[in-house]
């Protein structure tokens, strides 16, 4: 699903190019995770399991990470080195959260309470796709157009605000089902919504960091 890279090929890339590549890989993994949750909604358990397993087991990004880390220490970009490293680590955190989510989702085969619940989760997932994609665009623009990256991050924050409303409504709906609050189904759904919120919050915080970089480095007209 994701292209593998030769170490030699990676070593030729610049710090900025490695960051782009890493972000694109993580974004694709995010999409596979979201697609997996959509399969779960459709009760296509086979594909769901395949996607989640892929998110857990894939190591394509590790190669890029290793080359980046070896390059950044010898890099001559003294003044922006720390920020470049932080940016990269924040991308890596997305992978960690996605992996954690995938592991948790595989522990139990869930059956959704009703179609309305499914629909609302799908809407949240659409927003998650949107902000994940926007974040990838924004990270890739850090090297070439900080102002545009800053503006995209503003859109991410706006979308996250909308998402939060949907998430609270979903939680409210969940608590109003006639369901045992200690049941595996309830706990699973509650954790699933919580995990989606965690990933979305990380993306929002990340976008704020990009805005911080824009303010730090850019002299606005």
């Amino acid at each position: 699903m994701i292209q593998e890279y030769e170490e030699k090929e990676l070593k030729k890339k610049s710090i900025d190019e490695l960051t782009h590549l890493f972000m694109d890989i993580i974004n694709k993994q995010n999409f596979i995770l979201i697609e997996g949750i959509e399969y779960l909604i459709e009760e296509n358990y086979e594909h769901f399991k395949k996607n989640m397993t892929f998110v857990i087991e894939t190591t394509t990004e590790v190669q890029v990470k290793k080359v980046f880390e070896s390059k950044i220490f010898t890099s001559k970009l003294m003044f922006s080195k720390a920020d470049r490293l932080k940016l990269f680590n924040k991308i890596n955190d997305i992978k960690n959260i996605a992996e954690y989510m995938a592991n948790r989702m595989l522990v139990y085969r869930i059956i959704f309470p009703d179609n309305e619940f499914k629909l609302r989760v799908s809407r949240i997932l659409e927003s998650l796709k949107f902000i994940s994609n926007d974040l990838a665009t924004s990270v890739n623009l850090v090297g070439t157009d900080l102002k545009k990256a800053h503006d995209i991050c503003e859109e991410i924050k706006e979308e996250r605000r909308k998402m939060r409303k949907l998430e609270f409504q979903l939680i409210q709906r969940l608590y109003h089902y006639d369901m045992d609050y200690l049941s595996r189904t309830f706990l699973y759904l509650k954790d699933m919504v919580g995990d989606i919120m965690m990933l979305a919050d990380h993306i929002k915080n990340f976008s704020e960091y990009i805005q911080f970089l824009a303010v730090k480095y850019l002299i606005f007209k």
Binding site: D16, K76, L77, F79, S80, R84, L141, V142, G143, T144, D145, L146, K147, A149, L213, Y217, L218, I219, K221
Partner: peptide, 15 residues
């Protein structure tokens, strides 16, 4: 400095 748009350009000019 105002013409520099992205971190790549800024890094190159700072070199």
């Amino acid at each position: 400095l105002k013409q520099l748009k992205g971190l790549n350009q800024i890094e190159t000019s700072e070199q």
